[in-house]
Design a protein around this nucleic acid. Structure first.
Lengths: 186, 186
DNA sequence: CCGCTCATGTAACTGGTTACATGATTTA
DNA sequence: TAAATCATGTAACCAGTTACATGAGCGG
């Protein structure tokens, strides 16, 4: 019973393999097409990861030909399913429930290093890009809802909640920054 | 003009050094005491980072004795300030505005691998821990507001918005999961 | 036949983690 | 004087990134 810890990527891959055996390439595509840019799915991450998980006994490999093409299909072993369950199940670790890292938030923390002009530009740029993103995530929500998988849908909903919260926060920030900038120049 | 990219940690350190020269140890303490658990501030990250940034000409070191103790104080050079500004300034990269990674969301995505009981426990645990967290972040907001630094305050507000959005999302998820679980068992 | 996508990888690098270690100073 | 904290590090390790590379199959 391997009680080694699973990285986010490893956990996600096990989760994606849970229902249906899949090739590394297909996983890569899923990750790359996800609206979440943190899942890069680079080859240098994916292929070693699959072999690693296989070596640990969490995955089993099978060579198949889809159409006329050769491919390596991996599926979850029993130990793999157990590891996945342990990874998902409560009690939730601090790093899981804790405030998630947000690169935008970190940058805004140091907005004071920019000129008044650039501060405004920062917020305007962020708001515009967030609005565009919300449209994408909204569409993703609809798709996943149609797919029938409640948890997939709820995941997209989580992303939407997150985006909207960031937008509300930016609008609040914009007001406060505007007030502060005008009072300083006076 | 070093146009090398800055990691999140490097950017944050430069930002914290902007106004006041500081020792690596003090930075570590700030990071460790932050309510955000992603800033671990491990020694093996901090000390090499300071030397790295110094080598790149972004920081300058000065040996001081505070009280009777020896310490190395680092301050931002002009090049360091420029690098910090470039790091903060728009246009914002995809990875900065994109949906932030959320370990809780990723796990909920695969909640279907758990038993009905464990799914409920997951959500209950998450909600309880989030509520506790909100109290902490709320207190942090008040502190930072009192500090007078608008951007520090707004950063904490961002964390609060994020936590509340996650809670709202979990409550929504709880309802949907409950409905789904009861309909399946019927 | 050309270019795109499928499919699989390797190599070099890097930023960060954990664990271990040391010595000085402060506080109970 | 013992324990805690200040302060600074090193060593081993590891997951993930970028860039490079290869060959097969397919559609125009």
């Amino acid at each position: 019973m391997s009680t080694r810890y699973l990285s986010e990527l490893e956990g996600a891959v096990l989760g994606l393999l849970w229902t249906t055996p899949t090739t590394p390439y297909q996983i890569r595509r899923v990750l790359q097409r996800s609206p979440n840019p943190s899942w890069s799915g680079s080859t240098g991450a994916i292929y070693p990861l699959f072999r690693r998980l296989q070596r640990r006994g969490l995955l089993s490999a099978r060579h198949v030909r889809q159409g006329r093409r050769a491919a390596t299909q991996y599926s979850l072993t029993y130990a793999g399913k157990m590891a996945l369950q342990r990874w998902v199940a409560p009690p939730l670790a601090d790093i899981v429930v804790g405030v998630p890292m947000d690169a935008l938030r970190t940058r805004l923390r140091f907005l004071a290093v920019l000129s008044a002009e650039d501060r405004r530009a920062f917020v305007v740029d962020a708001i515009a890009k967030l609005r565009a993103q919300i449209a994408i995530v909204r569409a993703d929500c609809r798709n996943r809802r149609a797919s029938g998988d409640v948890y997939s849908y709820l995941t997209a909903r989580g992303a939407l909640h997150s985006c909207r919260a960031r937008l509300a926060w930016l609008l609040e920030s914009q007001r406060l920054i505007e007030k502060q900038l005008s009072s300083v120049s006076r």
